[in-house]
Simulated scan of single mutants.
Amino acid sequence: MAAEQTRRTSSLPHALARRVGQGIPAALLRYRVMAWIVGVLLIALILVAVPLKYAADIGQPVSVIGTLHGWLYFIFFLVACDLALRARWTLKGAVLVLLAGTVPILSFVAERIATRKTRAGERV
């Protein structure tokens, strides 16, 4: 029993090392989809819901779109972190990509740059 536990523990770093870098195309697709969803919702929130709230005193779109954007940004955050780990992005690149999801239109620019660099095998 102890020998099996030792063997299983010692092979853990090797198994992790084999998995790093695998699944990048699928992780990249998940990241791209979530980046677009979050980007579109953020633009809808800023250009439609917020003006409706302050110009026409209709607050429901802000609460619905804002809540939806918040939850989906959390999923975007997890998906982007997964891709960053798989593709071995730099910490600076990963943080900038995550922050870009909070700025209208910048999320689309960051998605294009991250996609281009990741497909080329470069670190973001």
Score class of each variant (00 low, 15 high):
I24C: 05
I58G: 06
H69E: 08
L47T: 13
G39R: 01
L47N: 09
L52P: 01
I37R: 10
R30L: 13
P51Y: 12
G59T: 11
A26M: 10
M34L: 14
L47K: 09
A27H: 06
V38R: 12
V38M: 12
I43P: 00
I65L: 15
I43C: 08
P25S: 04
I65R: 12
L45F: 06
G39N: 04
L47W: 09
R19H: 08
A35N: 03
G59E: 10
L47Y: 08
A17P: 01
A49H: 12
I43A: 10
S63Q: 15
R18A: 04
W36L: 15
P61Q: 11
V40Y: 03
L41A: 09
W71E: 06
L52C: 08
L42G: 08
L29F: 14
L16D: 00
L47P: 01
M34V: 02
L41F: 04
Q22R: 15
A27Q: 06
V64D: 08
V50R: 09
A49S: 14
A26S: 14
G66C: 02
V20H: 01
P51A: 12
L29P: 04
A55T: 14
I58N: 12
V62C: 12
A56C: 10
P25L: 01
I65G: 10
I37G: 03
L41P: 03
V64Y: 09
G59C: 13
Q60C: 02
L16K: 02
A35C: 08
D57T: 11
V33H: 07
P25R: 05
P51R: 15
P61H: 09
A56I: 12
G66W: 02
H69V: 03
P25E: 03
I43S: 03
V48R: 13
L28A: 06
I37W: 07
A44T: 07
A55G: 09
M34C: 07
L41R: 03
L29R: 15
I46E: 07
A44H: 05
A35V: 02
A17Y: 00
I24S: 06
L42P: 02
L42F: 07
M34N: 03
G66Y: 04
M34P: 00
I58C: 05
G39F: 00
P51K: 15
Q22T: 13
L16G: 01
A35D: 01
D57G: 12
W71M: 13
A35W: 00
V62Q: 11
G66E: 03
I43M: 09
R18S: 04
V38I: 12
V48H: 11
I37H: 09
V33M: 09
V48Y: 14
S63H: 11
